[in-house]
């Protein structure tokens, strides 16, 4: 299918997109949805799981889906993850160098960003952007001050600037439009304080249709990272 025209501009703005943010804000779910949307839109896509902090609920659990859609999936060996070894896959270099690939890099929360500091120069020299995933329902980043502090800390750790904010405010299966709107106003305040633009708001497809108009685009997502009891 050629859905390239339908792809939102923020998603295709850069060849490399690294997702950072406070732990548990939903970076993996956003990364998986971005990669799947790109691939379904006919773009040659890669997804890298570079989380060296979380042992569970990793994008590797959906590898079958990535294979089906021809997404190049890069991650450390399961053995490394299960041995608590904070290793990065050598194959990551391919994503940084192959100009024909659009790549989504899923980075671990907070100081998990440190792992990518090693690739600072390669990333900075590329057509790349670092996006900050924000969830207003995460108490540690629920105020503009706390969120700004988190943005600056990650920028310090990475040695790279955050180029945009993704409002990914949710409460797992209990998310309402109100949550997303609360996140939109938090994102707006963080944007005002930092000068970093809001790039989009995520919402589960059914909820996305019911949202009032927002200044930035809504990115309709599906939940792929499910718990073992969820349908």
């Amino acid at each position: 299918m050629d859905g390239r025209d339908a792809l939102p501009a923020w998603l295709t703005a850069r060849r490399l997109t690294a997702l950072v943010g406070h732990s548990g804000t939903g970076k993996t779910e956003v990364a998986v949805n971005m990669a799947l949307t790109l691939a379904r839109g006919g773009v040659k896509t890669a997804l890298a799981d570079l989380d060296v902090v979380n042992p569970y609920f990793r994008s590797r659990e959906r590898q079958d889906l990535f294979r089906e859609l021809g997404i190049r999936f890069v991650s450390s060996a399961q053995a490394m993850v299960d041995a608590d070894v904070p290793s990065l896959p050598a194959e990551l270099n391919a994503l940084l160098q192959d100009g024909s690939l659009r790549s989504i890099l899923d980075i671990g929360g907070d100081s998990g960003a440190r792992v990518l500091g090693r690739y600072r120069r390669q990333i900075a020299g590329q057509d790349s952007q670092m996006l900050f995933v924000l969830n207003a329902r995460r108490p540690q980043v629920s105020t503009p001050e706390a969120a700004e502090w988190n943005v600056r800390r990650i920028e310090d750790i990475m040695g790279l600037p955050v180029a945009g904010i993704i409002n990914n405010t949710h409460l797992c299966g209990e998310t309402t439009a109100e949550d997303i709107l609360l996140g939109a106003s938090l994102a707006e305040e963080v944007s005002r304080k930092t000068g970093i633009p809001v790039v989009c708001h995520t919402a589960e497809r059914s909820l996305a249709e019911r949202l009032p108009a927002l200044a930035e685009p809504v990115f309709p997502i599906e939940i792929y990272m499910k718990k073992p009891w969820e349908k």
Binding site: S23, N135, A136, R137, P139, S142, T143, L171, E174, L182
Partner: peptide, 11 residues
């Protein structure tokens, strides 16, 4: 200030 009814936490 944002009032939060429910919050998202890691176990």
């Amino acid at each position: 200030m944002i009032t939060v009814a429910k919050e998202l936490w890691k176990g």
